[in-house]
Nucleic acid binder design. Structure first.
Lengths: 142, 142
DNA sequence: ATCTAATACTTAGAAGTCTAACCATTTACG
DNA sequence: CGTAAATGGTTAGACTTCTAAGTATTAGAT
């Protein structure tokens, strides 16, 4: 197995295992991953956030974000608010219940991050992040 | 943003971008990612491979693998073969068409790997893979 | 002012993923 | 040997994701 093979397998497998591990920690909150990722971005964004902007932040298609927001709205965690300056646009805001949930999500994600990454030197993490970000730039350059 | 935050975001985003980039390169082959990943593992495995074993290799649930194999079988790329030693078990084998497809998939994946990772020193890749594999081990240890 | 192009959100449908539950078969144990 | 537990594959349903196509609105050009 070449180093490239090994690297791409490690990337894929680690990302997947991370996601599944976090899913398990958040399962009892009753919100899916797509849900809490979206909630987190809404909470962290200052000012109005449109559905399309949220989809970009979460890196999914606009169509995907529609049903995610539908479910969150139905669960009473977010609201759609019509924009006053552009009638095509709807903003997404957290409800108080959504704020509470975000607090829990953040605490658990932080905890898991500490549990796992706390065993690795910060310089190594920084260097790995550098390389991964470099790869992102390479992927984005056709 | 802490280095841990930065790292976990980089992991998630890089893995996702890699996957989407590879998807784009393989799109015209008419087989999905789940399909060609499964085909690759079948091709690379010596001897009989059961559905459950394949699911483990691909890291999905057995139930997920059922429909993936259904679709590949329907496309004439794999066959289910009953096991002679255990009546519960079905083995999955590639058809000749499946073998041909695997050759194409491998060539393109290799090409993409070279295109992207060819710009990065192998020592850096090896070191990153080490760290990622270390993280996998940490995730697996509850 | 009018028309075309672009944008924002929505719907539909196929594929992919998981959990839970099920049936048939095999294994383990008393 | 008989029974309980474990295993392998399957089905059902909710969620997730994408592409394609559609409607309403806005931006830009003439």
């Amino acid at each position: 197995m070449s180093v490239e093979d090994r690297f791409s397998a490690a990337l894929h497998n680690t990302a997947r295992m991370w996601r599944l591990a976090l899913d398990r920690r958040l399962r009892d909150l009753g919100v899916s991953q797509a849900g809490w990722v979206s909630i987190a971005y809404i909470a962290k964004t200052q000012g109005p956030l449109s559905q399309g902007e949220l989809a970009n932040l979460v890196q999914v298609e606009a169509a995907t974000m529609v049903s995610t927001i539908d479910r969150l709205e139905k669960a009473g965690l977010v609201l759609r608010v019509a924009s006053e300056s552009d009638r095509r646009v709807k903003h997404v805001v957290l409800t108080p219940a959504g704020e509470v949930l975000y607090g829990k999500v953040r605490a658990r994600a932080d905890e898991m991050r500490r549990d796992i990454l706390g065993h690795i030197e910060p310089e190594k993490l920084a260097m790995t992040a550098d390389i991964l970000e470099n790869i992102q730039a390479l992927i984005e350059t056709p």
